[in-house]
Design a protein around this nucleic acid. Structure first.
Length: 289
DNA sequence: TGATATGTTATCTT
DNA sequence: CAAGATAACATATC
């Protein structure tokens, strides 16, 4: 369930290990998972790995292409050095949706793409539900997509005023607006549920109905939740995954997400679950209005 | 067996 | 036409 904090963490770590590595082979085990011409990337040297919205972007020192990766719900990236083995688990970077896949030998049942580098290391793209993708894009094409993206919640320019304007322009449920990647970049179901709880706002409230002080509270809550996510999400993706390292610490810090029937951390009331836009939404009836 | 699932988008329906 | 609602994508798990 990679949301912004997860993707950010993976990007940072992959940037460290993939820099200056030369691609010598790309093996696609599932056609739909890789779009574009893979030949065009052979021989390319990685310049950097970064994050844009919930996407990872791998750029190269030469050529006119970038490789864009979207993990969607169940994608994960695992990079392993040439001499990796289960006992030592030496050089490894993993990130994305936590499954047992990244513990054992790869490729696994869910491996969709393998990118091999000249130094013998490999990058595995695993994706259980095959919603995610890797896509070779021309720089121009990528720039166009970039230009159309909204600000990220952790963007420096993502101001209270900007946020307020976004919310005012819609009367849909506030939760849907927050999750709408065309309007605000980076928030997924988990963090939205938690941010709304923290701000004391009912997820069903019409977006343009929020009062100024509520918008302010929500703005701050989003920042807090995402910052915390990066802090703990970072622990999910370590260079050296121990046997106990499966899954991330951030899960232990959820406020309401997935806690139907459990006690509200603030008032002790039971957390309710409802469906909004076909997605599970968790909230406390007493604390959120 | 059937319901449900983290993200995004295409396609309907207002 | 635009905004909003909903189905669809492929597969595993409970």
């Amino acid at each position: 369930m990679p949301e912004l904090p997860e993707v950010e963490t993976v990007a940072r770590q992959l940037d460290n290990v993939l820099r200056n590595k030369k691609i010598i082979k790309i093996k696609v085990l599932r056609e739909v998972s890789f779009k574009g011409e893979k030949k065009s990337l052979l021989g390319r040297v990685v310049r950097s790995v970064s994050r844009v919205a919930k996407m990872l972007v791998i750029s190269f020192t030469r050529g006119d292409e970038v490789l864009v990766v979207h993990l969607k719900m169940t994608g994960q990236l695992v990079w392993r050095a040439d001499d990796w083995n289960q006992e030592k688990m030496k050089q490894e970077v993993v990130g994305g949706h936590p499954t047992v896949d990244w513990m054992g030998d790869l490729p696994s049942k869910h491996t969709r793409v393998i990118i091999s580098f000249r130094d013998g290391s490999r990058l595995f793209f695993n994706d259980l539900r095959v919603f995610g993708w890797m896509r070779v894009m021309k720089k121009l094409e990528w720039q166009k997509i970039n230009a159309g993206l909204p600000l990220d919640v952790i963007d420096r320019e993502f101001s209270l005023v900007y946020f307020e304007n976004v919310l005012k322009r819609s009367k849909r449920a506030i939760k849907l607006v927050l999750m709408d990647q065309q309007k605000i970049g980076g928030l997924g179901n988990i963090y939205v549920n938690d941010a709304l709880f923290k701000a004391g706002v009912d997820p069903r409230r019409p977006s343009n109905d929020l009062r100024k002080n509520e918008i302010k509270k929500l703005y701050k809550a989003i920042r807090d939740v995402i910052t915390l996510g990066i802090k703990y999400g970072g622990a999910t993706y370590s260079n050296f995954v121990a046997a106990s390292g499966l899954g991330g610490l951030y899960q232990e810090h959820f406020l309401v997400y997935g806690k139907e029937g459990e006690k509200c951390k603030r008032c002790g009331n039971k957390i309710k679950k409802i469906m909004i836009g076909g997605r599970g939404s968790y909230y406390c009836k007493k604390c959120q209005s």
